[in-house]
């Protein structure tokens, strides 16, 4: 199953989208804890689009939700200047100043985070979450 969402890069749209995403995740075999983690991670990516890709001036964001047998995959696309957030180093913890935690949270909360450098339309980030811990553990054991 695949579902697409076209969002405006505005904070209140992100708030509303979280409701839709929660319903999708819970309907697709993620437990409450995993759903909360995915929602926060996607929220952080969308917030980054608003703040950094569009610098608060508005724009379009596309979210593609894919339900696969053992995982959910979420693609977030913006059409701003190229920026690979996965290259950002982890912040000092605990943080000594406000801010800078967004992409760190995304990395901690998802099983995989990949930036698609080949996509020429702007920025495409792929977030992946396994539906059960066993699948995630297996992936880590095999280093994949």
């Amino acid at each position: 199953m695949e579902q697409e969402f076209d969002l405006e890069a505005e904070a209140n749209h992100v708030t509303l989208f979280r409701r839709d995403l929660r319903a999708l995740l819970l309907a697709n075999q993620l437990d409450e804890k995993a759903a909360n983690e995915v929602i926060l991670a996607v929220n952080e990516v969308l917030t980054n689009c608003i703040r950094h890709a569009y610098r608060g001036k508005g724009g379009k964001i596309k979210v593609i939700f894919q339900d696969l047998p053992d995982q959910v995959r979420i693609l977030v696309r913006d059409y701003g200047p190229k920026f690979d957030p996965t290259q950002k180093p982890d912040p000092e913890l605990p943080p000594q100043k406000p801010g800078g935690l967004g992409i760190y949270l995304v990395r901690q909360l998802m099983d995989e985070v990949q930036y698609n450098a080949k996509w020429t339309g702007g920025n495409e980030l792929q977030l992946l979450k396994y539906k059960c811990h066993e699948a995630g553990d297996k992936r880590l054991k095999h280093g994949g």
């Binding site: 979280r18 929602i39 929220n43 406000p98 935690l101 967004g102």
Partner: peptide
């Protein structure tokens, strides 16, 4: 029920 990195940043700034 929910907090994101913006919320954390708000509390860190207030604490400082």
């Amino acid at each position: 029920s929910y907090i994101d990195s913006s919320g954390l940043a708000t509390f860190v700034e207030a604490l400082q």
